[in-house]
Amino acid sequence: MDKILAKKSLTQWLKKLDGYDIYAPFPQDDTWNYDLVTDPAKVSLDYLNTAQAPKKIIFPQREVFLEFARTEDGAPQMTETLPDPAPFIVLGVRPCDAKALTQHDMVFAGEYTDPYYWARRDKSVLVGLGCATPPSPNCFCPTVDGSPHSKQGLDILLTDMGANYYVEALTKKGEKLLGAAKTLFKPPTPKDKQTKEKVVKDAAKKIQRQIKNLAEVPPKLKGMFESELWDQEAMSCLRCGICTYLCPTCHCFDISDEVKNAGAVQGERVRTWDTCQFPDFTMHSSGHNPRSDKASRLRQRIFHKFQYFVENHKTYQCTGCGRCISLCPVGIDIIEVLNKVIDHA
C-alpha cells in the first residue's frame, strides 16, 4: 500500500497512534539516540543515523532473566521476569538497522527460541526511513546485499521527498498504522512515484565506500585461518569492544547473577551484551583460552560475520552501517580488512 504523507502531518499521525509506545531518535549530546516519545510534536526525522542501532530497544543491553531470593530455610525461590510490553513503534529505522534485526530473528529463533527476545520483538512495528543521503561516509550497504531504501525487515518504509514522505506499508502491521489516520495519507500521483524512484536511484549512487567483491570472501576465508593478516590488522586493537557494541547485528551476550544485598541472598539473573573482543569472553576457568590474543579475536569477528554466519544462515552478518569503522579509536576498518582478504594470495 503506497501513500503520501506531508512532513508537516507527521506529528498529527503520531498523535493518532493510540495504544502504542513510540520510540524515535532524539538529539543527545553530539549524537542522536533512540528514546521514548513523550510529545509527538518534538519528533523530528531530520537526522543522519543514531549512534546506537535500535536493536537495544528489542534486545536491551541489560535485561533481567529472573529474580531470585533464598527463603529462611534456604530454599531458592525464582521468579521469571518475561517482559510484557505494550505494542511499540520504532520510528525512523535506517534500512541497515532493520535488516540487522532480521538477523537477530534468525539467532533467537531456531531449535531453541529465546522467549525474552520474542516478547519484545513480536510487539514491535518498524517504521523505516530510507537514506536519501548516506548517513555516514563509511556507509557500504550495497556491497553487503542491502540498499539505502531496502525494505527488508520493515513494516513501513518512508522515502524522503522533500516536503513529503512517500509511504510504503509493507506488512499488515504497517497498514494498520496508516489506517489509524486515513485522512492524512493521500494516494501517490504518477509524478510522486517517479520522484520516489529518482530519490531511491540517486541515493544508491551516493554511497562512497565498497568492498571489492564480497562473494569471494566466505570461501576465501576458509583457507585463511592461519594467515598473518589477523596479526597485522589486530596490531593496533585496544580491545575496547566498541565495534561490537555499536554493531546492529552483534548478538553475543553474558548471563550473570547480580546480588542486591549482603545478607540473605536476593538478586537478579541478568543478560548483558558481551563481546568477542574481550579476552575473558572465551577464557576457561582453568585459564586456558582458545582465543587468547587479539589477532584470534579480530579473526573471530570477521569469520563470524563473513564465514560462519553465511554458512549457518545464508547471509552476511553485516549490514554496512559503517559504525564500527567511524568509531574505532585506532581506525580498524572492516572494509579494508575484507578488501585485503580478497587481495590475499
Binding site: 551476550f253 548471563i255 558481551d274 576457568s285 582458545p290 549457518n312
Partner: peptide, 17 residues
C-alpha cells in the same frame, strides 16, 4: 568451551561455525 546460554545464542563456545 566456556558457555553461558547452552543453546547456541550467546556466541562464545564456537569452534568455527
Amino acid at each position: 568451551n566456556k558457555m553461558k546460554c547452552g543453546i547456541g545464542k550467546c556466541g562464545r563456545c564456537n569452534i568455527g561455525l
